[in-house]
Structures are given as C-alpha cells and as structure tokens.
C-alpha cells in the first residue's frame, strides 16, 4: 500500500510538469488553432537557455560568479552533515542568485525566440490553412533541433534545481515513502502557474480576446482585436511557461537533446485531454503521470517511454475528441 502511495506521488509530480508543458500547447492552439508540434523543442531550447545562464555563463571568466557566499553560510555549510536537509537548503541558498538569474534570463530568451518564430514563420501565414501552419511547426522541429546541436555541442550535463532539494522521508501504512524536495516544489510551482494562467485567460480582457480570435480570426480582427498581438501573446506565454518547465526537467533528468522528444509525449497527453480544454488536459496529464509511475513499477522503465503513446491511441479510439475536448459540430 505504501508502495502504491510512493508511485502515485511520483506520478503526480511528473504529471504536474506534463500539465505545465501542455499548457503551452493548449494556449497556442486556443489562440491560433495551430497545434505546435515543435513545442517540445521550444522547451528544449528553454532548458538550454537556463543551462547557459545558470551554469555556463557564471562559470566563465568574465562573468560574475553569481553565488551568495557570506561567511556564515560557509561555516554553516561546513557544519551541516552531508545529505542532511540543512545542507540541501544551504547549497540552494548559495546557488540562488544563479538560479534566479538563469530562470529569468531563460524566460526572456525563450520569449524572444517565440516572438521570432511567431513573427517570421507564423504571422505570414495568418489566414492560410491550418495544414500549412502545422507543417511549419513540423519544419521547426528540425530547425530547432539542428540549431541546438550547433550552439551547444557538449554532452549531457546537470543544472541546479529551482528549489531546495532535501530528501523527505516518511511512512505510510508502515512502508517508507521517499520524495525529493525539489520535485515536490516543482509540482507546486507547476500547478500554481497552470492555475494562475488558466484563471487569467478566463477572466482578463486578453483572455477574452484570445478566445474570440480562436473562434473566428477575421471577425475578431474586424471587431478591433489585434489578432497578430493575440498570436504573439499566446506564443510568448507558451515559451515562457515552457522555459520554466524546461528548467525543471533539466534539473530533474539532466540536460540533453531528448528533451525535445519529451514534447511529443506531452502532445499525446494534450490530445488525450482534449485539445481545447485546460481542465481535461490537466486531468490527462495527472493520469498519465500516475500511469507511467505504475508502469515503471510493474513493467520496468523501458515501457514508460511508450506509455503516453499507447494511452493516446486507446483514448482516441474510444473518445475521438479526448476526455473533455469539445466536439466540433459540422455545419453544412
């Protein structure tokens, strides 16, 4: 029983990150009716930006070290036993300037990237067929993946966690449960961002403009909504949340090009939940997270990578528009 709990909580923690990534795909879809196949690669870029600004730059000679190292911290760190929670908090505090700088810079850089993509590749196709725009994102997969390998030639590396990473141990029904603090914190961050953005889209004028643009671009345009601006906002939103998700993932799994492929499993999750339903996608993300954890437990780690794909095929066959997606009534 305790073991089930352990895997369930592991699943929820990775599910929350899925949800955060999915948010970007759904937001872009809601605003522009384009499914961004390259979202995983945008996230990969976000992760590499974080790696650059939090690790590579501070390590270079000409850039400030960006660590917070007053005397008391050094002494406290020396006194704290290895792998103790205190040591974890102290080392996080020491790295905090790097983490904050890296995260903010990564968000800015990813947003800039999104603006470039939107302005030069998406906007010229405004009003063209969806097919064309989807194909553009397919082309972007290749371009972003190539650009990444051009700039960052190094192998897999590790980056600092966003939150302190003490090991948390407790017992449930007599069996031990073990959680990394940073993963728990990431889950909280992911859910908070997800909730805040969904609320913002529901309540704010910008959110209404986005929904109007998704209904009918030309009508929205003629009603005075700047459709290009809505598009740009959606892309920036997706890239910014993607950068946070990328930083979390990079800290958890190490930084590597396979982050791009990760995006495809999130795409599967998005379709499972229903392309245009934030709630459905959130539920699907959590379900797949837990499902993956259970698969890992019962069938082994190999099967985890195909779990979302098998799940999406089954869900699409049973409910073609996902768990909570709206079925388009065909007008003839």
């Amino acid at each position: 029983m305790g073991q089930v709990f352990q895997f369930a909580i592991n699943g929820l923690m990775s599910g929350a990150i899925y949800a955060l990534i999915a948010l970007g795909i759904v937001a872009v879809y809601k605003a522009t009716r384009v499914v961004n196949f390259a979202h995983g690669y945008v996230i990969m870029m976000g992760a590499y930006f974080y790696y650059t600004f939090a690790v590579l730059l501070p390590a270079s000679d000409w850039f400030p070290d960006l660590t917070y190292a007053p005397d008391w911290l050094a002494t406290a760190k020396a006194e704290a036993p290895m792998f103790s929670p205190a040591a974890a908090y102290l080392s996080w505090l020491e790295n905090l300037p790097r983490i904050a700088f890296g995260l903010i810079a990564a968000i800015i850089a990813a947003s800039l990237l999104a603006r470039v993509i939107e302005r030069f590749f998406m906007r010229p196709l405004l009003g063209q067929s969806q097919f064309a725009m989807i194909m553009i994102t397919v082309g972007l997969i290749s371009v972003l993946s190539g650009v990444k390998s051009m700039i960052w030639t190094g192998d897999a590396a590790s980056v600092p966690y966003l939150a302190p990473n003490p090991a948390i141990r407790f017992e449930v029904f007599g069996s031990p449960v073990f959680i990394f603090g940073a993963n728990l914190a990431s889950m909280v961050i992911a859910i908070a961002i997800f909730g805040a953005i969904v609320l913002w889209l529901r309540r704010s004028a910008a959110g209404v403009a986005m929904r109007a643009a998704s209904e009918d671009q030309s009508t929205a345009y003629s009603m005075g909504i700047s459709v290009p601006q809505v598009f740009a906002r959606a892309w920036v939103l997706a890239a910014a949340t993607g950068a946070v998700a990328g930083a979390i993932l990079a800290a958890r799994d190490g930084i590597s090009p396979s982050l791009g492929l990760f995006g495809f499993s999130v795409l599967a999750i998005v379709l499972m939940g229903g392309l245009d339903s934030f709630v459905g996608v959130f539920i699907a993300a959590m379900c797949v997270g837990v499902l993956e954890a259970l698969v890992q437990w019962q069938l082994g780690g190999d099967w985890v990578e195909v779990t979302p794909y098998i799940a999406v095929l089954i869900v699409i066959l049973i409910r073609p528009h996902g768990l909570m997606g709206s079925e388009e009534v065909e007008r003839i």
Partner: peptide
Amino acid sequence: QEIFFGALII
C-alpha cells in the same frame, strides 16, 4: 543538415 531539412519545409 537538420536545419536545412527544416528550412526546406518552412
């Protein structure tokens, strides 16, 4: 090569 393929599509 990867960039080139992508750029061709786009």
